[in-house]
């Protein structure tokens, strides 16, 4: 029986499977969109808590009709965007008791230093938002183009173009990295 059918039959019973099936892709995607492990973990948690509450309210027919990865990502991406907006409005926030300063949603030097990031993480974090989100959802989270179109609520052709432009920009950044002082997070990948 498919996961949506099991969710439609008994949300409480099937919900842990939903989390287990999708938590890695939600976390991985949120990590590359927010560039913060703490935020990505919070967003992953909150995504599934909201999904559970919604599933409890939905009639079984509506649950059976859900396209799961896309639906979950609609919730997750909203949370990522809310977080970016609140960071823009309150550049310095107390986050879990520790004071963090963000100029934008990209990683600060301390975020990058704290984790041994893969070489691609730095350049990816410097892509402008729409391209980065499209590339991350397609190739890190592993969504299909139809799913991507569902999540971003845009035509498939448009999201495809965003992904391609994002990949192109990424190749450019890898060939020709900007000077380290302007983006400290890139210092690690400078050849």
């Amino acid at each position: 029986m498919s996961l949506v059918s099991r969710l439609a039959a008994d949300v409480d019973q099937a919900f842990p499977d939903l989390v287990q099936t999708l938590q890695d892709q939600v976390f991985s995607g949120a990590l590359r969109i927010t560039a913060s492990r703490a935020d990505a973990e919070d967003i992953t948690q909150e995504t599934f808590v909201r999904a559970y509450r919604a599933l409890c309210d939905y009639p079984p027919d509506r649950i059976r009709a859900l396209k799961l990865p896309g639906w979950i990502w609609t919730i997750a991406l909203n949370l990522c965007r809310n977080r970016a907006r609140s960071l823009a409005r309150h550049p310095v926030t107390a986050d879990n008791g520790r004071l963090v300063a963000h100029a934008d949603s990209r990683p600060g030097p301390e975020d990058v230093a704290a984790w041994r990031e893969p070489p691609l993480a730095g350049p990816l974090a410097t892509l402008p938002d729409p391209m980065r989100v499209a590339v991350v959802l397609r190739h890190v989270a592993g969504l299909s183009y139809p799913e991507l179109a569902q999540v971003l609520d845009r035509p498939e052709g448009t999201v495809k173009a965003d992904v391609h432009r994002g990949l192109e920009r990424l190749r450019q950044l890898l060939r020709d990295p900007p000077a380290p002082q302007s983006t400290p997070s890139l210092s690690e990948v400078t050849p």
Binding site: Q23, D24, Q25, V26, F27, S28, L31, R32, R37, E41, T44, P118, P119, L120, A121, L124, V135, H139, V140, A141, G142
Partner: peptide, 10 residues
């Protein structure tokens, strides 16, 4: 390399 950024949730 992008796919390799996929990582397990904590």
């Amino acid at each position: 390399d992008l796919e390799a950024l996929r990582t397990a949730a904590p």
